[in-house]
Amino acid sequence: MTSEQDPRPRAVIVACTDGPLLVRGEIDLISASGEAIPRTRKTVALCRCGVSTIKPFCDGSHKLVGFRTDPVPPADRKRDEGIVTGEEAPPDAERSGA
């Protein structure tokens, strides 16, 4: 099917609130020097908070640094309080793979 017949875009990027850019669809992911960055899954999350340990992918660390995408965070969100960073603050629910 050609793009004239199919109005859908090749790829969609979802700007996740307080989190990564979720990329669905066909994109070429390349490094600054033009080499392909290996991609092992269909949908990927690209870090936009700057602290991921697996850049350009998100590793969930945005939650540890209180990364906010809202210009004014909603008052009813308690996530602005008590933010601690780094390995000292893993979630208390203990997951080993989901």
Binding site: V14, C16, G19, P20, L22, T40, R41, T43, V44, A45, T53, I54, F57, C58, D59, G60, R95, S96, G97, A98
Partner: peptide
Amino acid sequence: WYFDEHVEADAVHEQI
């Protein structure tokens, strides 16, 4: 590998 895989995978899965 299992743990490393989940660092990346679940950062995607949690958003979905």
